[in-house]
Design a protein around this nucleic acid. Structure first.
Lengths: 262, 262
DNA sequence: TAGATTGTTAATCGATTAACAATC
DNA sequence: TAGATTGTTAATCGATTAACAATC
């Protein structure tokens, strides 16, 4: 989904190589860019959310144990993750909440609110357009686009739906790099191609299909039915596990079932 | 999120141990339960979706290369994943589409349609209740619940919204094991507890919080803002990478930004 | 100083991948 | 038989975790 760079920052004869530095300072712009494992990146937003809770509760510091518990991970993993950002904790005390919030926001690129375009204002698109969680967590929905002329002009949270024909103009106007695709599956690939051509480099895809995009474009996919199917596997396993040791007919007793119509 | 069992199916003196069997037949009910890596489980729904496309296009067989491409993975990974289900391909030919669909559906527990309860019929809940993708992929939304008396009785796709006070009765009535939480974050934990007490063992959580549930209950979380924040990290990194080698001021030129109001 | 807690180490575990023998 | 493609091996990589020395 996203490419990894396994380059070693400094060669064996580099005079700085003897000083281990957890940060990759290769950018040289004063903006440090740590080399972050993907698994760590995926957890940072959860830490950030938990930290905001501690901040609202008036905590000035938080221990790795408390923060990890609030984020649903173990403390060793949390400390390992945070160590990739550098050292921002104090032994015997914990982490300064405000400092850590700032550090994570900085690493995630959330110091500035990012403009997002939402394409496909149907059932789900409507819900996403009205979702307050984006605004409070670093994003601004800057454009709504739909192919149905009947929906063009409709206002959601004060923002008017534009026709998909205006996609290129709208993206240019707002300088949008991130788009959410909530169109029918048939339209998703061609919409993605137009978005990329218009400068989008990150896509969140709700359509149940694989998008083909050029290198350098990141795609994340959310498929609601897939999530349920994964849960179904675990349901199935739990039911079988309960039935097998003693052959109990009570297995899956609570499972509601009916033939699949295919 | 879900516990792993690392038990070896048979001991060193087990007479069957000399015959390697990819399937864990410990269930003894004739229902084979392969020991499946979580990463594999998470990809099976994607293979299933791709297989349905091939079936609709009239293909009777499909090669690992073609199926992997349609699912967005490489063919080695696909073959490794499918090998955990047993051997269902034919060398020189590929996989029988219909057979493989049946095998994956069987492993995922999708041979019977599963009843799902949806709690929280707000913005997002409405969209989920109207989403056709659940019905076509193995699920039936059997109950809608909300705490707002003003919403009770409203019908979505012919199903009436029930009051949350009736949660226990509704879950018992439909024998529901899987629930989707789309409530405000403040309500999510207590709703989860009531669902678990009423027999739910799998939860798909859209509320931006960590749910605490007993062992044996599986929770999957979908957080839309988290997905965007992960994309934001990659946007940030791409912009920095573009600027650092030559110090170009054009870096992040396209990034729309404004101060975060916190 | 004593207690608390971080940052890091090292062992372990799970997932990915290329390559190729097996075999249709 | 020749060509195609699977199933498996083995090497590699990345992620997790417990433990504890460092240190506030």
């Amino acid at each position: 989904m996203s490419q990894h760079r396994n380059e070693v920052p400094s060669g064996p004869t580099d005079p700085t190589a003897s000083v281990p530095d957890v940060r990759d300072l290769s950018s040289g712009t004063g903006q440090q860019l740590p080399e972050l494992p993907e698994a760590t990146v995926a957890r940072l937003p959860e830490y950030l959310r938990a930290l905001h809770h501690f901040a609202e509760a008036g905590h000035e510091t938080v221990s790795s144990e408390a923060l990890a518990s609030a984020a649903g991970v173990n403390s060793a993993k949390l400390r390992k993750d945070l160590s990739h950002l550098g050292s921002y904790g104090t032994r015997g005390v914990g982490y300064d909440v405000v400092v850590l919030v700032g550090q994570i926001e900085s690493v995630l690129g959330l110091t500035h609110r990012r403009a997002v375009a939402l394409v496909g204002i149907g059932n789900l698109g409507h819900a996403l357009a009205g979702y307050g969680g984006f605004a409070s967590r670093g994003f601004r929905i800057a454009a709504l686009l739909d192919a149905d002329p009947g929906r063009v002009g409709e206002r959601i949270n004060g923002l008017a739906v534009r026709h998909i024909d205006d996609l290129e103009a709208v993206m240019e106007e707002h300088r949008i790099n991130i788009a959410v695709i909530a169109t029918p599956v048939q339209a998703a690939q061609s919409v993605a191609e137009r978005l990329v051509a218009a400068g989008v480099t990150s896509i969140l895809n709700f359509a149940p299909c694989v998008l083909t995009v050029p290198d350098g474009v990141d795609v994340r996919k959310v498929d609601l039915a897939v999530e349920l199917q994964i849960l179904s596997f675990h349901e199935h396993r739990k039911a079988s596990a309960a039935s097998s040791p003693n052959g109990s007919a009570l297995a899956e007793r609570r499972r509601a079932e009916e033939p699949v119509s295919s």
